[in-house]
Each structure stands twice: as structure tokens, then as C-alpha cells.
């Protein structure tokens, strides 16, 4: 019997997706369905938490190679 499950579709690059999958693996409380390497469906109420966690994770790993130079 067909089911319609409420959620939020996330479209992202594979690197971001693997971070989300990793975050979910702790409690399995984020992902509803893993669709393909660039798409997944997550619980509506977890999107906010997920964005926050993702931002924290990016802060840890993302370092600009050099400071922004003045354009002139």
C-alpha cells in the first residue's frame, strides 16, 4: 500500500551528504530515507538542528586558504 511520508528533501553534494549520514548514525533520528548520492529525505523538525550541526562541522573543517585580499 502506497505511503506518503512528510519530510524535507535535501539536495546536496556527496561530501555534504556523507556528513549528514554520519550525523544521523549516532541516533538514527534525522534521515527518513537515503535516496541517492545527492538526495535524502529528513525529518521536518530536524532540519534546523541539522543545519546547525552542519555549520559547526564546516567551521571545523573549512579553513580559507588565505584571508580575503582587498580588491584594489
Amino acid at each position: 500500500m502506497v505511503r506518503a511520508i512528510r519530510g524535507v528533501l535535501i539536495e546536496c553534494e556527496p561530501a555534504i551528504k556523507s556528513i549528514i549520514v554520519h550525523l544521523d548514525s549516532a541516533n538514527n533520528d534525522i534521515i527518513i530515507e537515503d535516496l541517492d548520492e545527492q538526495h535524502l529525505v529528513v525529518k521536518e523538525n530536524m532540519v534546523h538542528v541539522l543545519k546547525q550541526k552542519l555549520e559547526d562541522r564546516l567551521k571545523e573543517t573549512y579553513r580559507p586558504e588565505e584571508p580575503l585580499a582587498d580588491s584594489d
Binding site: 506518503a4 511520508i5 512528510r6 528533501l9 535535501i10 539536495e11 527518513i32 543545519k51 564546516l58
Partner: peptide, 20 residues
């Protein structure tokens, strides 16, 4: 920059997954 990064890298759409 982080905010831009996230917005470029992740797009969200609320809705319904139809399966089974």
C-alpha cells in the same frame, strides 16, 4: 562565507515521499 557555502551546497524542499 559559511552561510553562502551552505546555501550553495544544500537545497531543501518540504513535501512528501511517496513509496511502497
Amino acid at each position: 562565507r559559511l552561510w553562502q557555502l551552505e546555501n550553495e551546497r544544500m537545497r531543501t524542499t518540504a513535501g512528501f515521499l511517496f513509496k511502497d
